[in-house]
Design a protein around this nucleic acid. Structure first.
Ligand SMILES: [Mn+2]
Ligand SMILES: [Mn+2]
Ligand SMILES: [Zn+2]
Ligand SMILES: [Zn+2]
Lengths: 148, 148
DNA sequence: CAATAAACGCAAATCAATTGCATTTATTGA
DNA sequence: TCAATAAATGCAATTGATTTGCGTTTATTG
């Protein structure tokens, strides 16, 4: 569970720091990412909002957030896209993701893991490697419970 | 380059061994996977054929091949699906892929690598892991050449 | 506060992939 | 080998996620 005190976080400031304009929807969207523990799909975002929002606006906001280094994409089991908060200092210029992801093959929930030891590879068969995508598929704790 | 003598490979037999019926198109399709070095997209498959084929038939054949352990999916940079020959002894019952993939971020070519040391993980934060997907993104040799 | 730029909502378009159905081809067993 | 049965194919239509165009609304700037 991600513990934080909303009073201590200025979501408008976070948007500004990432070069994003502060609209009421965007402030609520970034707050939603801080409130929810893990990744979100477009449909989950809409479900979690207390007001109607056009799906297109969600897509455009997510694309802007991603371009400016606030969130990053994670694929689910069906190769559909989910989004998760960037954990390190990402920005428009530098978008680094040196962490792996847990993906529950049952509920599609995604968990960013920072303490997974990522193998260091720079070269393989002449191929120059500049990014590793590591997805660990399995069962999340909740889904293990419900199988008992 | 994958070297093999077509005379020595009975593609019909390969289909039979995987529980797939032998149609003229399927024999050519499996031969194409053996001929081409790496992964193929649906469009690349159609381009490489000397006769017209309905895209739907390609999709259906690929789905059948995948279900029966002859090929497996690999995502490209845009999360579109490419297909590559299974390297180990896959079948309908057991579909194991303990290898990583190189993915060229320029040309989307995919290379299966069997000698990449995959970290062993069984558990992480209560999550039960039963499959690792490792994609090494970078530049293939051909694309490095064309940038010079 | 006015001028400018960006975001939003709605409708339509795009694009990969799937589905239904009639027809053709493959498999099977007498 | 041949008819009966099952599976694959072609074509048209559909699905579903995502994107685009455009007029309107909201935010930013000075
Ligand atoms: Mn992450
Ligand atoms: Mn492979
Ligand atoms: Zn789960
Ligand atoms: Zn390349």
């Amino acid at each position: 569970m991600k513990l934080f005190d909303k009073k201590n976080i200025d979501f408008g400031m976070i948007l500004t720091q990432h070069g994003l304009s502060k609209t009421s929807f965007r402030k609520i969207l970034i707050e939603l990412f801080y409130t929810k523990k893990y990744s979100l799909s477009v449909d989950e975002i809409i479900t979690n909002l207390s007001f109607p929002i056009d799906k297109v606006s969600v897509y455009r906001a997510l694309n802007a957030f991603e371009k400016n280094g606030l969130i990053h994409k994670v694929p689910d089991m069906a190769n559909l896209i989910r989004y998760a908060l960037c954990q390190s200092e990402c920005s428009f210029e530098k978008h680094l993701h040196n962490h792996a992801h847990l993906l529950c093959s049952n509920c599609n929930e995604t968990y960013c893991i920072n303490d997974f030891k990522i193998p260091v590879v720079n070269e393989c068969k002449g191929f120059i490697i500049d990014n590793l995508k590591i997805i660990l598929e399995g069962s999340c704790v909740d889904c293990q419970q419900s199988y008992k």
